Simulated scan of single mutants.
Amino acid sequence: MNLPTILISLLILAVFIAIVARGICNKKHGKGGCSCGGDCGDCGGGCHCK
């Protein structure tokens, strides 16, 4: 592997880790993850709104 390939791979890995970390942080703080738009009456049970 050459240097540009390694650098691009590390950049893609860093972006992936940032996206996953952001999702975990949002889930811990109760943000996002609700596809019903906040109207839990329309959810099929997959949404746990507060």
Rank of each mutant, 00 (worst) to 15 (best):
M1F: 09
M1K: 03
N2V: 00
N2G: 13
N2M: 09
N2K: 12
L3T: 02
P4W: 05
P4Q: 08
P4R: 07
P4H: 02
T5Q: 15
T5G: 15
T5C: 11
T5D: 14
T5R: 10
I6C: 01
L7D: 10
L7V: 14
L7Q: 14
I8K: 09
I8V: 13
I8W: 07
I8F: 09
I8Y: 02
S9Y: 11
S9K: 11
L10V: 11
L10H: 13
L10N: 04
L10W: 12
L11M: 09
L11G: 08
L11V: 06
I12F: 06
I12V: 03
L13Y: 03
L13A: 14
A14P: 00
A14W: 03
V15K: 06
V15G: 00
V15H: 03
F16S: 09
F16W: 09
F16V: 10
F16L: 14
I17V: 13
I17Y: 04
I19M: 08
I19F: 14
I19L: 12
V20K: 08
V20G: 06
V20F: 14
V20L: 14
V20M: 12
A21D: 03
A21W: 01
A21I: 03
A21F: 11
R22H: 15
G23V: 01
G23Y: 02
I24H: 08
I24Y: 06
C25Q: 15
C25D: 13
N26D: 11
N26K: 14
K27S: 13
K27D: 07
K27C: 03
K27V: 00
K28G: 07
K28D: 10
K28L: 15
H29M: 04
H29V: 01
G30L: 08
G30A: 06
K31Y: 14
K31T: 02
G32K: 05
G32H: 11
G33I: 01
G33V: 04
C34T: 04
C34D: 10
S35L: 10
S35N: 11
S35R: 15
S35F: 13
C36Q: 07
C36G: 04
G37K: 00
G37I: 01
G37Q: 08
G37C: 06
G37W: 05
G37S: 04
G38K: 07
G38M: 10
G38P: 02
D39H: 08
D39S: 07
D39T: 03
C40W: 14
C40T: 13
C40A: 10
C40V: 09
G41V: 03
G41C: 01
D42N: 10
D42I: 02
D42F: 05
C43R: 04
G44M: 00
G44V: 00
G45H: 05
G46A: 15
G46H: 12
G46L: 13
C47M: 05
C47V: 09
H48L: 05
H48Q: 13
H48K: 14
H48G: 12
H48Y: 12
H48R: 15
H48C: 10
C49H: 08
C49F: 00
C49R: 00
K50W: 07
